[in-house]
């Protein structure tokens, strides 16, 4: 009985490993990226047709939010990687001695 269970589990694992999952196929990844980039284009075009009743002048600039979001994240990553990480990174056992 136990042997049967073990065999069944082994087969299941085998099937899991052989089974192609969604992102195992590169074309699926490409498809997701394509959809994502299409959304970006739609948003960029849509921005011209939406009237921003804004509090600040810059909100009315074309594509303000798109540019701000993009630049903010690039700055965030670059500062974290090249400024903060060299300052604060230590070995995992730094506090262990």
């Amino acid at each position: 009985m136990e042997k049967l269970e073990a065999m069944r589990a082994a087969i299941k694992t085998d099937v899991m490993q052989k089974r192609q999952h969604m992102f195992d196929k590169p074309e699926n990844v490409q498809r997701v990226l394509r959809i994502f980039f299409s959304c970006l284009v739609v948003l960029l075009i849509g921005d011209f047709f939406v009237h921003q009743h804004s509090f600040f002048g810059w909100e009315a600039w074309p594509e303000f939010y798109a540019v701000y979001g993009f630049v903010a994240c690039v700055v965030l990553v670059l500062v974290s990687k090249y400024v903060l990480r060299p300052l604060v990174m230590r070995d995992e056992d730094y506090y262990d001695d």
């Binding site: 990226l33 994502f36 959304c39 970006l40 948003l43 849509g46 921005d47 939406v50 009237h51 921003q52 009743h53 804004s54 909100e59 594509e63 303000f64 939010y65 798109a66 540019v67 701000y68 979001g69 993009f70 630049v71 903010a72 994240c73 690039v74 990553v77």
Partner: peptide
Amino acid sequence: LAHVMSQTELLFFSALAFTML
């Protein structure tokens, strides 16, 4: 519409930054 649009733009282009980096 303006709020939905601006927030979606902000987030999608943040995601673009992540993807490109």
